[in-house]
């Protein structure tokens, strides 16, 4: 998977360079999410709850596949001494 596809697919996860503006809007507004303490607390902390909502809809296999992709990128960045 090339970087552009990864960024579009993953959205903002702290390790990619794109979609920061849209991600920040989603994080601050909490648009489309249930209003309750657990979710609002996460939003206030800067957690992208839209990404969590998307993950909840995914299968375990898909969550782990995406996690492995992110881990591979982190390892590459670490080896390149970017982290």
């Amino acid at each position: 998977m090339d970087d552009e596809t990864f960024v579009a697919d993953f959205g903002c996860d702290g390790y990619t360079l794109g979609m920061v503006g849209e991600c920040e809007q989603n994080i601050k507004s909490g648009a489309g999410l249930p209003k309750c303490h657990g979710i609002e607390a996460a939003i206030e902390h800067g957690i992208d709850v839209h990404q969590l909502a998307a993950n909840v809809k995914r299968s375990v296999s898909e969550r782990l596949r995406r996690h492995q992709i992110a881990l591979d990128i982190v390892e590459k960045l670490r080896k390149a001494k970017r982290l």
Partner: peptide, 15 residues
């Protein structure tokens, strides 16, 4: 931070 994510997931699952 993990607790915040997990509690949010718990709420999202309930919804």
């Amino acid at each position: 931070e993990a607790v915040l994510q997990l509690e949010a997931i718990q709420k999202l699952r309930e919804e």
